[in-house]
Amino acid sequence: MSENNFAYEVDVTVTVNGERVSRRVDARRHLVDFLRLDVGLTGTHTGCEHGVCGACTVQVNGDVVRGCLMLAAQADGAEIWTIEGLSDNGSLGALQKAFVERNALQCGFCTPGMLITAADLLARENQPSREEIREHISGNYCRCTGYEAIVDAVEMAAGTRSGASQAGGDSE
């Protein structure tokens, strides 16, 4: 509506998963809605829309960013990577394999954001402790797993978890 200041449209050109994308969008369009609705990348999820849950986590210019706290217009010119591109190029491969093997996901809604956050940790710290892993993913909400399997899987991907207890966790 014309009297609404947030309704002005803007042109946005970004690189998403290595492909150049240009769209005209509402100035108020969040990055996560832009990715989901305008680019068709539904692997990035919307959970709380106020930056708490981490489901919309994506990479923007190499940084981990909440897609609900950034406007599409702010991303103009940026390089964005989502779960789809990071899966296609194999950069999450070790983490994804460990998540599947360790059943570090249940409903899967948090998983893309969790993987991107965990990859960010492993990029900085290749031998993180369990406490460091827990701290690093503490901004990503998972209601299903109770987190332990995720911590195990990140350890597995980092190669710091012993083979014997990999699949099942500490189970009797």
Partner: peptide
């Protein structure tokens, strides 16, 4: 599980 870790759930 694999489709979910690759963001291919629906």
């Amino acid at each position: 599980a694999r489709k979910l870790v690759e963001g291919r759930g629906q």
